[in-house]
Design a protein around this nucleic acid. Structure first.
Length: 607
RNA sequence: CGGGCUGUAGCGCAGUUUGGUAGCGCGACUGGUUUGGGACCAGUAGGUCGCCGGUUCAAAUCCGGCCAGCCCGACCA
């Protein structure tokens, strides 16, 4: 090796030496300037027709993202700078916790997914992009990387002495979303950081999880985002816990409930609440069946039976439930004034999926048309679940299981089977916080991060084990952790914009500062702008020089739209050393002397 | 997967009802005049009207099929 190297160098081929001579010496190159005139920027005057939410409109109008297909985008140079800056923050904070950055393949063989048992489900759900290679072998584009990472670590780690291990990557992900929308928020190709921790036992996992949680908090804090950590549904996987990091924004796809008093916060999919009890039904009365033609909804029943409030009614909703090997129609009872949470229902049944039964399925299962389902005389083969809110409630009003009839004074267990009690209710704003009892508040959130205690689901399925101290093979105890790397900058825009355009948080702005010469044909403006650029650059500011030939008005508008946090305009007062200074957030504009610029920029950036 | 809407120049749109051989604004290009809030004047280029088929002397326009995109539904017993 050593001698090979030396000899190659010593006998460099003639042609290679010539090549070297052609290269320009670095010392003779002019100082590097980030000039906007050399960066591909194409802002639009109008909002694109297909954009709905502010971040999508603004990112598209600023030319920062360009759609190539539904949910598939090109990142323009300035946007890519932003994404790279965010990715770098993610890297720094994960590395601080001892995680290892790797790069896993996007294209993956079917066998890997079969080994974890996920191939059929992902293919049937249509969420995975699949393809065949020239030999006809099935491949897929990774929607997530548990399989690859588990296989990788399993192959490298044999002993408990090598644990814990935490690896992550920042990589393109592919999911064939049912409905791609909102620009970068829900794309079919997107960038994600996914990390996976491997521990010997549960306490190890708990510690790994906590480290990641801390890192995530630092990441979103550094970006200047208003975010909250909420309890999240952990899906059919179960597990000890899962939390989501939510950026608060009106356009968020998730609904969260929270309490200022106790700090309780949860995704509505998971949230629980304290509920005012239903009005007392009194001592059990005899069951009655009453003709209620065309009365099908709770609202109609309240009108039909004056005095009966929805809280004393029990609606019976029929669901078509799918498990791995079977499917069935299930009856679910809920207090009339409350709503069923389908995520909780799916979990309670340990099912793959639930959906409302069709009219035909309802008729087949209950013998009655839609609107008249109830527990009384419900066929034995239809499982009966009920929400805990109905527990102990006497003399209920329910459907009669017969078209055109409802039952009054139904008492569960007496007039029908005793249902299986579950917590199935959707918590709502205004109901009591489960911790403090104070009314819960509601907000919309954009999920930018999700951390998850996986346990041994994948390691067990895939036979990924290490040798413990007793010399026995034991499955890894895993955690997985994701951050939407392309989504988070979009969420930042969603949280920070005004009528003039984007207002980037400094930490992830394409540039922290722009120095714009309003007339690049005037030597004194060019010279002053260039000097200020050099001074700011030397002071560690990520600055660019706007030397584009445009009218002053256009230049103001363009920079406002692009949203650089600090903007310095060199114009007609350049000869006297005067410039204009703009803090984009709040649009505070002032004039100052060139000599003050550096201090003002650093102050505006909080340094 | 259902329901609705849309597809005409790089972008935003009109024209389709009542068929007659394609237009507006922005943008682009050339020349000139400009230079503090998306400048002005003159000129130029750019469109198989999403695709395929049908009706017709004639189709952006009418009919059929397909494709693409967007919005909504997925709390109703």
């Amino acid at each position: 090796m050593r001698s090979d190297r030396a000899s190659v160098k010593g006998r460099a081929p003639h042609a290679l030496r010539r090549l070297r001579k052609c290269a320009t010496s670095l010392a003779t190159l002019p100082a590097l300037r980030m000039r906007l005139s050399q960066i591909l920027i194409s802002t639009l005057r109008d909002d694109p027709a297909d954009a709905e939410i502010p971040s999508h409109k603004l990112l598209a109008r600023a030319g920062l993202i360009v759609k190539i297909a539904a949910g598939v985008y090109t990142f323009a140079p300035l946007m890519w700078r932003t994404v790279k800056k965010f990715a770098q923050i993610v890297r720094e904070e994960l590395d601080r916790e001892g995680a290892n950055e790797v790069m896993l393949p996007i294209m993956q063989p079917k066998e890997l997914w079969v080994s974890s048992g996920r191939w059929d489900r992902y293919v049937n759900d249509g969420i995975m992009f699949t393809l065949k290679d020239r030999k006809g072998s099935d491949m897929c584009l990774g929607p997530t990387h548990e399989e690859v990472m588990t296989a990788y670590v399993n192959a490298q780690v044999n002993s408990y002495k090598q644990l814990p291990v935490n690896c992550y990557q920042i990589q393109d992900k592919f999911r064939d979303e049912i409905r791609p929308r909102f620009g970068l928020m829900r794309g079919r190709e997107f960038i994600m950081m996914d990390a996976y921790s491997f521990d010997a036992d549960q306490p190890g996992l708990d510690a790994a999880y906590q480290k990641m949680r801390n890192a995530y908090c630092r990441i979103f804090e550094r970006c200047g985002l208003a975010y909250t950590v909420v309890q999240a549904d952990s899906g059919a996987i179960g597990g000890a816990g899962s939390e989501e990091f939510m950026v608060i924004a009106d356009s968020g796809e998730d609904s969260i409930l929270f309490c200022r008093e106790s700090g309780y916060a949860a995704n509505v999919e998971k949230a629980v609440s304290k509920l005012p009890p239903a009005p007392a039904g009194g001592e059990p009365k005899p069951l009655q069946t009453i003709a209620t033609p065309d009365v099908k909804t709770v609202a109609q029943l309240e009108a039909f039976f004056p005095g009966w409030t929805a809280a004393r009614m029990a609606k019976t909703v029929l669901y078509h439930v799918t498990w791995k090997a079977k499917a069935k129609v299930v009856a679910v009872m809920m207090r009339g004034d409350l709503e069923i949470n389908e995520v909780k229902l799916t979990n309670a049944l340990d099912a793959l999926a639930v959906r409302l039964a069709t009219d035909d399925e309802i008729k087949a299962a209950t013998g009655a048309d839609v609107g008249f389902a109830g527990p009384v005389n419900l066929p034995e083969d239809v499982p009966l679940l009920a929400d805990e809110s109905l527990q102990g409630v006497t003399n209920l009003l329910t459907g009669g299981n017969k078209t055109g009839y409802h039952c009054l004074d139904v008492n569960l267990g007496r007039d029908c089977r005793m249902p299986s009690w579950k917590e199935l209710r959707t918590a709502r704003a205004g109901e009591g916080c489960p911790v403090s009892g104070k009314p819960l508040e509601q907000a919309r959130g954009i999920e930018v991060g999700h951390i998850f205690k996986l346990g041994i689901k994948y390691s067990k399925a895939m036979g990924a084990t290490f040798m413990d101290q007793g010399g026995k093979p034991v499955p890894f105890v895993m955690g997985c952790y994701g951050i939407g790397v392309s989504r988070t900058p979009a969420a930042a825009v969603e949280q920070s914009f005004d009528d003039k355009g984007i207002v980037w948080p400094p930490a992830i702005a394409p540039f922290e500062c722009v120095v714009a010469m309003l007339d690049p044909k005037r030597d004194e403006q060019v010279a002053l702008a260039d000097a200020l650029y050099a001074e700011l650059k030397a002071a560690g500011v990520d600055v660019c020089l706007d030397d584009r030939a445009m009218s002053p008005g256009a230049k103001f508008k363009d920079n406002e739209l692009l949203g650089f946090p600090v903007q310095v305009f060199v114009g007609r007062k350049a000869a006297e050393g005067g410039v204009e200074f703009l803090v984009r957030k709040g649009m505070q504009k002032s004039e100052c002397a060139a000599a003050e610029v550096k201090a003002k920029v650093l102050a505006a950036l909080g340094r």
